[in-house]
Write a protein that binds this DNA or RNA. Structure first.
Length: 503
RNA sequence: GGCUCAUUCGUCUAACGGUUAGGACGCAAGAUUCUCAUUCUUGAAAUAAGGGUUCGAUUCCCCUAUGAGCUGCCA
């Protein structure tokens, strides 16, 4: 049974890179008939942000990523919040110490910082590793006898447990995306596994212990974790869990649309597009951020766009439903290099999905916007409008601005269009045209088209001139569906009223 | 700086070692049209550089360059 987990840290809203990681995990799990587990890694009490966990769950929900087991759902391995599992980890950390794979360290953050700075000033690189651990304030220091150690462990509250990284191992790893990767343990340092100060493990310990306990079979996560993989391999070995170790896949990063570096939470508002699935409103009143949902994106489009950033099915198909993606996904086809996110392409995806919606589906999206503007009409008429505007909309929120003139007469007229088409004879011609239209009783698109064409020809008017003038009077600008479709929808009375209202 | 990973049109990407290096977004031109769109047609646009291996390299190897990630008692 394939079991994957998405394990975000509740340090703020989940950004789109995180959503993509969750998506790939989900696609992989579902393709293999497996389970998708949501675990919250809240082992950093300093960076905890209230509301973030709720936001993560709501985001997954909006994207159509269903959690089989985990926070918010429960399951046989509960609890799924690491802060609620804190008792578990010390035992495992101590086991590592007993087996000689880890040791206690009493250095204060301040002393380490100054040590680090001293070495850097001398042009050397500081690494907490096999070369210095016995010289520092650790249980490995020859001057630390067992009695003192015991006493200090009891009395002091700032010690940590560090992993004793071997000095001379070649660690061979396998990554489903990258193939074989090798690292020398001598270049690695002794990571902190457990912190006495808040009785919490660090990511590395909690992650390995929980993945083991929760019987995770595949770890699919961002490339930023690749440098930690050797440590994780060593931890599995140290615990004696190598046989049941999960497979790993490290996903390429999402890069900024322009400039350097990975897409970060800060980029969005600066560059003019959202980086979050949902709008984020911090509970403590800090700065909020835009979201794709509120900006008018459909979740199917958002998810489809994200899926193709770093993966493709190997065919030319780009538009895919979640079910199709589940069928087509393969981790071997995930790309190795980072993908620049393109806001343009995101818009294109949304357009495609908007156009594939039926008129009644679009009406459901349009209605709340109409209500917010104090306008109502029958379902049939709203659907008719949707059929006329759907080819013109990119975002859900475009619907109202495109639909407005079908329900409300223009209050002002686009001055640029006015200037472009204005001729002295226009007011008079428009009046004559209106009078003619008044004589037409069969007010249908076809009939209007036929009769008016004939009339314009007879008058020897220029088609573009009179039609655009009419359009300006009825619509207020030079956009919208075919003129007679609009007239048919508005009806004779309203059409004439608008034609005669313009000055 | 050190370690690790990567590199095909501007961007996302396709191509058993043999293709006129394909598609999509965007861009440009044209067609259609009463406008704006849509749609359709066409076009410009790439294998980072240099060495190998090979009859033949985008594909395998080396090196250089460039980019990215990590280098916390963050995840």
């Amino acid at each position: 049974m394939v079991r994957v987990r998405f394990a975000p840290s509740p340090t703020g809203p989940l950004h789109m890179g995180g959503v993509r990681t969750a998506l790939y995990n989900y696609l992989f799990a579902k393709q293999n008939g497996g389970e998708f587990i949501l675990r919250i890694e809240d082992t950093d009490s300093q960076r905890f942000v209230p509301g973030a966990e709720k936001y993560i769950i709501e985001s997954l929900n909006w994207c159509g990523i269903k959690v089989d087991e985990g926070v918010g759902v429960g399951g046989p391995h509960a609890p799924y919040r690491q802060s609620e599992r804190k008792e578990i980890y010390l035992k495992y950390a101590k086991q590592l110490v007993d087996d000689g794979w880890a040791y206690y360290a009493f250095d204060t953050p301040e002393s380490l910082n100054s040590l680090r700075k001293d070495m850097e000033d001398k042009g050397e690189t500081f690494a907490y590793n096999y070369q210095i651990r016995e010289k520092l304030d650790t249980s490995l220091n020859p001057s630390m006898d067992l009695e003192i150690l015991k006493e200090r462990l009891e009395k002091e509250n700032h010690w940590v447990i560090r992993f004793k990284m071997p000095s001379d191992r070649a660690i061979h790893m396998k990554d489903l995306v990258r193939g074989d990767v090798t690292a020398m343990s001598s270049t690695l340092d002794d990571k902190v596994l457990y912190k006495r100060i808040d009785s919490l493990p660090t990511y590395h310990l909690a992650n390995i212990v929980d993945d083991h306990l929760m019987e995770i079979t595949h770890v699919i996560r961002g490339e930023e974790w690749l440098p930690s993989l050797p440590l994780h391999y060593m931890l599995y070995e140290a615990f004696g869990w190598k046989d049941s170790m999960p497979e790993f896949a490290h996903l390429p990063l999402l890069l900024k649309p322009e400039g350097n570096g990975k897409l970060s939470k800060r980029d969005g508002d600066k560059l003019g597009f959202p980086v979050f699935p949902l709008r984020w409103i911090p509970e403590d009143g800090g700065d909020g951020a835009r979201g794709y949902r509120e900006d008018g994106y459909l979740p199917e489009a958002f998810v489809n766009m994200l899926a193709l950033l770093g993966w493709n099915p190997g065919t030319e198909q780009e538009i895919m439903t979640m079910d199709e993606m589940i069928k087509l996904f393969s981790i071997e086809k995930v790309n190795k290099s980072g993908a620049r996110f393109s806001p343009q392409k995101a818009l294109w995806f949304n357009e495609q999905y908007l156009r594939s919606k039926s008129n009644s589906e679009l009406a459901i999206l349009l209605k709340p916007q109409m209500e917010a503007n104090g306008v109502s009409d029958t379902d049939e008429r709203i659907e008719k409008v949707c059929s006329l505007i759907k080819e013109r909309a990119t975002l859900v929120c475009d619907l109202w601005s495109l639909a407005k003139f079908y329900f409300v007469a223009p209050e002002e007229y686009d001055q640029k269009v006015y200037a472009k088409f204005y001729k002295n004879e226009n007011p008079e011609n428009l009046r004559i045209f209106a009078d003619f239209i008044e004589t037409i009783d069969d007010f249908t698109t076809e009939n209007l088209n036929e009769r008016c064409h004939a009339f314009i020809e007879e008058k020897q008017w220029k088609m573009g001139q009179i039609m655009n003038t009419t359009r300006l009077s009825v619509v207020g600008s030079n956009s919208g569906a075919a003129m007679w479709d609009i007239a048919e929808f508005l009806g004779k009375e309203e059409t004439l009223k608008r034609m005669r209202a313009i000055k």
